[in-house]
Structure formats: C-alpha cells, structure tokens
Design a binder for these strands. Structure first.
Lengths: 207, 207
DNA sequence: AGGAATATTTACCAATCGGTACATTATGGT
DNA sequence: ACCATAATGTACCGATTGGTAAATATTCCT
C-alpha cells in the first residue's frame, strides 16, 4: 500500500516533504502506547516529524488519523489474525491466532499489547466514536472466527455438540486477555504458555 | 467500612456535608466508565455531588481519589476474586472467579467491564503511576491464584505435570478478556459461555 | 517569467485540564 | 458571646488540549 493510495498525490503544488506511510507508522506507535486520548497532538507531531497544520492537511484530524493508523495496524506485515483463518483445521487456525498474538503483543520492537484493545477501552464522551469503531473491529474479528468455526463444524473438524459462537468468543477473550497481560509486562514466552494451555484443550482435530 | 475509617472525623469545625463512602461510590462509577484520564474533575464533582475544593480537602487529588476508589472496588460486597480462593477445589475456585466475572462485568447496574483492567490500560505519561498501580493489582491477583493452584497441585487436585503459574496466567487472561468483552457489549449469558468453555477443559478434579 | 496550486512555518484561538486562594459558613469548646 | 477549626462556594490560576488563520515556500503548467 503506497502513500498515494491513502491520499491521491497531487500533480501540482508544493510536494509533501514527508512520507505519509512512515508518518502513519510513527503515529501508530504513539496511539498504541498511549491510547487515543492519551496521545496528544504534540506527541504525535514530534513522533511523525511534522507539525500540526501538515498533520491536519494530510490526515484530517486526530480522529481520522487514529482510524487510519488502525487500518495500517490491521494491514501491516506482522498482522496475524485474518491470515490465520486460512489454515486447514480449526486447531491450526486458533494456534496461529494465539501464537501470533503472543509474538505481536510482546514484541520488544513494538509497544506492548494491542491497539485495538487498548486504544480506547474506557474514555471520555468525546472519544465515543473511536471507542465504538474499535468495538466494531473486535466484533468483526469474532464474527469472522465464528464463521470459520462453523465451517469447521460442518466439515466434522469440530464435534457436533460444539458451539462455534461460544468458542469464537472464548478465543477472542483469550486474545484480548493476552493483550492486557502484555501491557502488564508479560513476555512472549509467558504468553505462549497461555496459548499452549488453550490449545491443549481445543476440541478440534489436530494437525 | 465507615466513612470515618477513610479519614478520621474531626471533633471540631464545620461538619462534612456529604457521605464520603457514597461519594467514593459515585467516583468509582465515573472512573469505571471513563477510565482515570477520561474522567474529568467536573465529571467527578457532578457525580459526587460536591465541588472541587471539597473533593481535594477530602481525598487529596485526582490520583489519590482514584486509588481510593480502587480500594473500594476491591472491597465492595460484589467483589468476587479473593473470596473465590477459599473454595475447596481448584475447579470451584476458578468456577467462582469466572462466573463472578461474568456477573460483575456485565451487571446492568454497573458500568461494563472491570475498572482494574480498563482504568488506565494505555495512557499518557502523567498517569504512569496509576497505570502501574493497576498492573500491580492485576499481578497480585495472578500471584494469589498461582499460590492457590500450587496448593491444589500439592493436594493432588491438579495433576503432577500441571504448571500452576501458567494456569494462573491463563485464567487471569480469560478474566481480563471477559472484561474487554463486557465493555464491547457482551452480556452475562455470553460471558458465562466463555466461563463454561474454560471449565469444561479444566484439568482439576470436579466438585 | 508568471500564475495556480499545494505544503510548511509561525503564531495564534477558545475550551478544557488539574488544582487552588480566598472569603464565607457552620460547628464545638471555653 | 467569642474563638479556633474545618467545610463550602465562587472565582480564579497557569498549562495543555484539539484545531486554525495567515504568511511564506516550493512545485508544475503555461
């Protein structure tokens, strides 16, 4: 995804002096660490290497900037959730989700946790729109996993008595809990133990 | 716990016109719903029915007020975590934790979720102390459960190959994930399904 | 070369933030 | 009745918040 895909590059006028994609990456780091409301405009500008008018011209306002960083977060190379759905068995699907979460949430090169969990969990009224956007993102992940588990049940991968919706909610709860654990200082090995505990009891076929 | 236990009632001077305990309850509601930073002093004052000088005279400042509300949160009648440790088997312990979390996090009479999870998960530097206080609270719960599971292992309740620290981290992750689910709108029945999923696979003896 | 278009810089805006000075009011002790 | 003590209401403080007006700088097009 090039910067010109975010905002069409104009053919005339003074050219932008910064890379929008890199600036978004820096903004993501700030929002990830401090949350939507905890990240101030000076925080963001300093990290992005630009000043406020440039930020507003390029991204709209703080809220739109945040939503764009979330898009980036979900599309970046190390995103693990949606690709995990492609695996052949429900066991492999949840294994890749849980292990991906362990790696990403506790990656020392990134802020701890998950910005979709901690970006706006409890906040003032002025952040309601952002909070609900993140709720929708979490919910979308749960629905996608539920659909995948329904398929697994239809294929005989999961037992007939299993409840895909409940299992999806359970897995999402564990993933979100792992994000909280990571912000509390849990490292990758500790999170992998959580993943292992879940996998050891997974009702689907192995392999 | 009476109000006079919080701050010794003076024998002289104009008497306090509000109930400190009830004011703390109201402050808790605000912090619970909006988080530490998202709750403004006007928000708190309005809910508590007092104005700023009274708040500062009675509770110190915003940070100390928050820490006192957290104490109240952990000690209030519907608190479920530490009492659950007293049950006879590890199965009963985690069952009461998980079911208590389902009830409390999705109680329509209270804000959704858990203030110890969402009070200051990602925030600005000025809230670092509060954030780390909540991390310590969460960690203390995990250590207490770990100790209880070690006892269960020693008693033969949990199998010899089980890892109490990993199990405790897993349960705490689920509890924290349930709090996130509750802030996303999950109801009590949905959270109980998560609890059931965990309990169905619990390695300890039943009953 | 000159103009249209866009980006950058500086300086500013009103609103809100957490926190407090000060005058007033209400109590108990003497 | 009077004083010491403490709580209240009002009105304020400097700092920071998200956001912008206006001037300047850099490009392409003619």
């Amino acid at each position: 995804m090039s910067a010109s895909a975010v905002t069409p590059a104009p053919t005339v006028g003074r050219p932008r002096a910064f890379d929008m994609e890199k600036a978004l990456q820096k903004a993501l780091e700030v929002f990830w660490r401090k949350g939507y409301e905890g990240a101030s405009l000076p925080d963001l500008c300093e990290a992005m290497g630009i000043n406020k008018p440039s930020l507003y011209a390029a991204f709209g306002n703080k809220e739109q900037l945040f939503l764009k960083t979330i898009e980036l977060y979900e599309n970046r190379p190390c995103a693990f959730f949606y690709p995990a759905l492609e695996h052949a068995t429900s066991y492999e699907v949840v294994k890749h989700m849980l292990c991906g979460a362990a790696s990403t949430n506790a990656d020392p090169d990134n802020p701890p946790g998950c910005v979709i969990v901690q970006g706006a969990l409890a906040c003032s009224e002025s952040a309601t729109f952002v909070k609900e956007a993140l709720i929708a993102k979490r919910r979308a992940g749960e629905v996608a996993l539920c659909t995948r588990l329904e398929q697994a049940k239809a294929e005989g991968d999961l037992p007939d008595h299993s409840d895909p919706a409940a299992l999806a909610r359970y897995i999402l709860a564990v993933l979100q809990g792992m994000a909280v654990q990571a912000t509390s200082g849990a490292n990758c090995a500790e999170l992998k133990q959580v993943a292992e505990t879940v996998l050891a009891a997974w009702p689907g076929k192995r392999g």
